[in-house]
Design a protein around this nucleic acid. Structure first.
Ligand SMILES: NC(=O)c1ccc[n+]([C@@H]2O[C@H](COP(=O)([O-])OP(=O)(O)OC[C@H]3O[C@@H](n4cnc5c(N)ncnc54)[C@H](O)[C@@H]3O)[C@@H](O)[C@H]2O)c1
Ligand SMILES: NC(=O)c1ccc[n+]([C@@H]2O[C@H](COP(=O)([O-])OP(=O)(O)OC[C@H]3O[C@@H](n4cnc5c(N)ncnc54)[C@H](O)[C@@H]3O)[C@@H](O)[C@H]2O)c1
Lengths: 229, 229
DNA sequence: CGCCGCTTGTGCATGCGTTCTCAAAGTCTT
DNA sequence: AAGACTTTGAGAACGCATGCACAAGCGGCG
């Protein structure tokens, strides 16, 4: 019953927004939400919410809205959040540390269960309640702990090699923080988080605002509002 | 001559990829690149590269390719990278620390010139070579240091308020790391980096790979390759 | 019990982004 | 100097995503 519907990528990317909005709503002991309300919370428009949710099935009730708990369940099932996803972080530097100590992970079913680094001086040290392990142990770590998701937090120069090793070790989803293009086999999912790119995009639009004046940007009074997560 | 061409958003998001690829190419003392080669380095296809670059102008030479240095200059001008963009980070916790210590920023013209936190215990402490300042000083900091870009690295609960304060202080581009929807006036640019969403998207596709078996994921031999930065 | 008002689900039009394709325009070779 | 070869730049077709608009469906009220 829940099987092979094809869900557009753009919709998949928004499901987590709805999920989060629904969690907040549930916390406030609200039983049902309209697409209108959900749209407001997720920062999108109502038609989009309805269309997105319709890909999952007809879970709403006309004249009423969506049952919060029920919809939460459906979305979490669709996103695969009904199970835990152990994660391994490769590269325990500045960023790797922050990620390892981040509590927001485990809270949502993404438990960090492995920390790996190439630097012999780091191997054996403790970060949070995990001990940093050697790169060569990756296959064993991934297999033993049934890890499907790997996070790359190494310098850019090592990212491709690390990704290759992760894939070889059996990981089939990778989140890359290194600012470089990484290539993986098609059956492996790859997403990136690239700070420099984000800043450069902001820079592009920023430049168009202040043509090339040196004066401080105008302090405009809020009027219309743009939204993002 | 360089003025008001409209560049599609999708193209703007890829310019940083080309920029990075070109930097690497220049480092290797290569004088020209074809769209084919650039596409390979950036992980996109060649037609897209040509169309993207054509929005900037006709900077290629038929039969030859693009002059690396010249194209670098054009893209950096378009992205606004010919000037420095001082940045302020609000929220000096786990993540804020990592960002503050990150050397990749300044290297590309995004110098962190302010660290702000609401916690009185953190105000006055030194991180890298900056002293953490109080939230109330934000307007002064932004004006004095001509800061246009703000980074939000506070807990989700404080993100909206912090964003509002940043806008009020005169910042007109915001990068949000907090996992929540933030709203800003339309004239302010807002981008987000959301770890939880990225992981949940990976989870979605991961789940579809291993329907619900517990066996280790298949170690497929690399065949076709998918790419991402 | 039937009507009214509300909200979903979706058909449809529109717009944006991607990709194919190829003539035009240049270089390089002989 | 002319022809062969290479690569750009853009026209056009296609596909995906968005947003409008409204009929269908449900609950509640009179
Ligand atoms: N620190 C940040 O705030 C930040 C922000 C955005 C992006 N990044 C990117 O994230 C990555 C990590 O940044 P960082 O600041 O933590 O760097 P870092 O130098 O502090 O840490 C990198 C870690 O990776 C390890 N490493 C190097 N080669 C390795 C290999 N082959 N296998 C396993 N481990 C290896 C190093 O030993 C080190 O511990 C970089 O690519 C950086 O550009 C960092
Ligand atoms: N740590 C990570 O690796 C990581 C990863 C992804 C996302 N995030 C997100 O980034 C944000 C920061 O994470 P963190 O781990 O650094 O949290 P943290 O609790 O370590 O740090 C938050 C900091 O913000 C400060 N703060 C709180 N309210 C403030 C306010 N109103 N104004 C200014 N400063 C305020 C706190 O004093 C604290 O120093 C969170 O929203 C988190 O969900 C963190």
């Amino acid at each position: 019953m829940a099987a092979a519907r094809r869900i557009p990528e753009a919709t998949v990317a928004r499901l987590p927004l709805y999920y989060r909005a629904l969690l907040d709503t549930a916390d406030q002991h609200v039983a049902t939400v309209s697409s209108e309300r959900l749209a407001e919370l997720a920062g999108v428009n109502a038609a989009k919410v309805r269309k997105d949710l319709s890909y999952l099935g007809s879970y709403g009730t006309r004249g009423v809205g969506y049952d919060v708990e029920f919809l939460l369940h459906q979305i979490s099932r669709e996103l695969g959040l009904t199970q835990d996803w152990p994660v391994v972080i490769v590269g325990v530097g500045n960023l790797g540390h922050a990620l390892a100590n981040y509590r927001g992970f485990g809270a949502r079913g993404f438990q960090v269960e492995g920390l790996v680094d190439a630097d012999p001086k780091k191997v054996g040290t403790k970060v949070g309640n995990l001990v940093v392990e050697a790169l060569d142990d990756l296959p064993r770590i991934v297999e033993e702990r049934k890890i499907a998701i790997g996070i790359v937090a190494t310098p850019a120069s090592a990212a491709q090699e690390v990704a290759d090793r992760l894939v070889q070790a059996g990981v089939s989803s990778i989140l890359n923080f290194a600012p470089t293009v990484v290539t993986v086999p098609t059956e492996v999912s790859l997403r990136k988080v690239d700070l420099a790119i984000e800043l450069q995009i902001l820079s592009f639009y920023q430049q168009r605002k202040t043509p090339n004046g040196d004066g401080p940007p105008a302090h405009a009074a809020p009027s219309k509002r743009a939204r993002a997560t």
